[in-house]
Structure formats: C-alpha cells, structure tokens
Design a binder for these strands. Structure first.
Length: 378
DNA sequence: AGGTTCGGAAACTAAAAGGT
DNA sequence: CCTTTTAGTTTCCGAACCTC
C-alpha cells in the first residue's frame, strides 16, 4: 500500500479541491452493457467506490469467550440505498466505534485455502470420495486397515477428436487498459489505484468515479494504520477520512437512462431506466459468461438425497463418469452453466443508482467538500 | 460419535483452437 | 510452435444417513 495517492497524473500537491479544473472529458471509451457500470472514463479520474457502512457490531461469534473479537463478514451494515442520484463513498469515513481505519475494510477471514488434490488417489479413497495422499498405502487406508488394497487407480484416457467451437478470446488486458476484476455481477470493474483499498471480494456494489481532484490520502504522507492493536481505542474518526462526506452525488447523475452529460451517448443503450434502475435484461455483452458455474454452492445445497439404502451396486456410476460416451448427454448441459442464471434474477439487488430526476438537486443537498464535477457539465 | 455414502463443486489437465 | 481456451475427468468436501 503505497502512501502515494493516485492523484491525477499531473499535479504535484494540491488539496483535493484546489486546482481541480474540470478536465476535458475525453472520448468515452465503451458503452457499458445497459444496467452495468460505466467503465472508467479515460483520464486522471481516481476511482471512487460506492461503499456501505461497515458494521461495527458484527463480531466473530467464534472468538474466544469475551475476547476482543473482530468484525467478520458480513461486515456491512444494512444500509438503505443512497438517495437518488447519490452514491456511498469508498472508502467510507469511519463510523464511530469502528475499530478499523476509515476506508480500510476489516481483515477478511483468511481466504479459504485452495484445495489441493493429489495426482492420483488410491482406489479405496477414490471410491469413498475421500482425501488421499501420495503415500502408498495412504494414510486413510492405513487407518482403516486397507493398506494392502491401497493402490493407484487407472486413469481413463481422455476422449479425443472432440470438435470445439471457435474460442472466445478473453479480454487480454495488457497495457494501458486498467486491470479488471469481476464484480459480483460478473461485470468488469477497475482495480483501484494504489491509494485506495480494493473493495472486498465479492463486493456487490457498483462503483463510480469521484469528482476529479479528490484524493483520499492520509496527510503528511503518513501511512494508514492497518488496524488497531487489540484494546486500543478506535482511532475514529480518522482525521483525514472524516473530512469528506460518506455520500456523494452520483457522478453520472441520472445514469442509467441518460448518459452523463458531456459524454457521448451510449450507443445501443435503452434510454428509459426501470424504476429499479435495472434494465430488464442484459443485452449483448451479457455474454460475458460467468465462466464456471461456481456461482452456486447454495443452489445445490438444499439437495435431496434419495438414498436407496440397498444400493447393491457397489459403486453406482457417478455422473457421466462411467457412462459410455453414447449415453452421455453430450456437453449440452454443461454449457448451461451460465444459463441457469436465469433463476438468479431474484437475488437482492445492491443499491442501484438509478436515474432520478432529482439527481441534480439531491446532489446539491449533501454537505461537505464540494465534489468537483466529474463531467464537464453536471 | 464415528463411519459410510454420494451429489456436486473444485481442481486438474489434455485436446483443440487460435496466434505468431 | 506456443499460448489460450475449453471441457473431460478426477478429487474430495460436506451433508445426509447409518450403525453401534
């Protein structure tokens, strides 16, 4: 975490406000899918993430009795959607009592380590669907007295000659392009510049760009504390972060529905925004398939298990594995991974930043450092 | 409580397609 | 030929179920 804020490329110092001339808005890069986010405009605009308030009251129930637990996910308070035409700030100014520096998300519960597989499980473990190891006999077989039958299975040879369709080349974001990371909606977002913390993984809220010239950096080049020593009083509110409001006018005003002023219109985007601010369906670019169907884990969890106890067949064919190629439902269903998204429509939508006629007035309502107009005219 | 079963997600990996 | 994408295959997590 460099302390160097991602200022506009040029200026040397300058406060957030000063000298923040409305930059001439270069050509707007690409129309986002309707209902998605505007991609960053080219230019020196630092990203500014929408971010709800961290929930200081949510603590780890598993923490040692009475221990000073730390907030754990979900650590967002259930905050109402921002007023029409407004967005939450990211990073947020610290909430009183929030034990972490403003804008610094609490430490995530260490990401689940990636599962490591052995190259080849022994037949016993494989049939039991249990973890095996490289040793022979493997640990599990030893434990259950199956040492003598602990042998490698045989791998089936992979099918050959399967025709494949033309490949979709992934967006090869190399140089000038901002590096992308998928949002919860599977859309592409832009990595924050060094001075901004990355929103937590799976962060469901759209982000927008702040008024040009705002730089949420600590003063005097002091690095942000990464946390507070246990027991230490919360350093809230952060002297720097507290200087800016938690909510800002949506820099794009009435998006979606109306392209930001000063920007060329979004080709192909429907003009009208739904009351929810969401378009009915994602056109074209929705093909950005969510690669793996990893999306679920839940949908399948309520699984019903009809277990015929007397499954005499010592090992019923699992999935397609033992099914002769002819019987296999080809890969048709595999391709539907993205397709079953159809049912996902219902998921609670993050605060939307829908078009609102009041966007302008609302924007004027907030008090705090006046955000510089992102758009030449707003 | 500990063992078994097994659905299905994650991981692995090789074949096919695409790029140079 | 090398890289990338895709999908076939395997591993094994995790929950239901069973047995003692």
């Amino acid at each position: 975490m460099s302390s160097e804020p991602a200022k506009s490329a040029s200026s040397s110092s300058s406060t957030p406000q000063e000298g923040a001339q409305p930059q001439p808005v270069p050509h707007y890069p690409q129309p986002p899918p309707y209902g998605g986010h505007y991609p960053p405009p080219p230019g020196p605009y630092p990203p500014f993430y929408a971010y709800p308030v961290p929930d200081p009251s949510h603590h780890d129930p598993n923490a040692p009795n009475g221990a000073p637990s730390q907030p754990v996910a979900p650590f967002f308070m259930a905050v109402p959607p921002p007023p029409p035409g407004m967005v939450y700030a990211y990073p947020m100014p610290a909430a009183p009592g929030y034990p972490f520096p403003a804008g610094i998300p609490p430490p995530q519960p260490a990401p689940k380590p990636k599962r490591k597989q052995v190259k080849m499980a022994c037949t016993n473990c494989a049939s039991a669907c249990k973890r095996c190891d490289e040793a022979r006999p493997c640990e599990r077989c030893i434990k259950y007295g199956l040492a003598e039958t602990c042998v490698d299975g045989v791998r089936k040879e992979r099918k050959k000659g399967i025709k494949r369709g033309p490949y979709k080349r992934k967006n090869r974001n190399g140089s000038g392009e901002p590096s992308d990371y998928p949002s919860a909606e599977g859309e592409q977002q832009v990595a924050p510049p060094p001075a901004y913390p990355m929103p937590p993984e799976g962060y469901p809220f759209p982000f927008v760009y702040p008024p040009y010239g705002y730089v949420p950096a600590p003063p005097d080049g002091q690095p942000h504390p990464e946390g507070t020593p246990s027991g230490a009083p919360p350093p809230m509110p952060h002297p720097v972060y507290s200087t800016y409001p938690a909510i800002y006018p949506h820099p794009y005003g009435a998006y979606p529905g109306a392209p930001p002023m000063g920007y060329p219109p979004m080709p192909g985007a429907p003009v009208a925004a739904s009351p929810n601010g969401n378009a009915a369906g994602k056109p074209e670019s929705s093909v950005a398939s969510p690669t793996n169907g990893s999306a679920s884990t839940d949908p399948g969890k309520g699984k019903k298990r009809s277990r015929g106890k007397g499954d005499d067949s010592s090992r019923p064919a699992k999935k397609s594995r033992d099914v002769p190629p002819e019987e296999q439902q080809s890969n048709d269903d595999k391709g539907t991974v993205g397709g079953d998204m159809a049912g996902k429509e219902q998921q609670p939508q993050p605060p939307t930043f829908a078009a609102h006629p009041e966007a302008g007035p609302a924007a004027a309502a907030f008090n705090g450092p006046e955000p510089r107009p992102l758009m030449a005219t707003m």
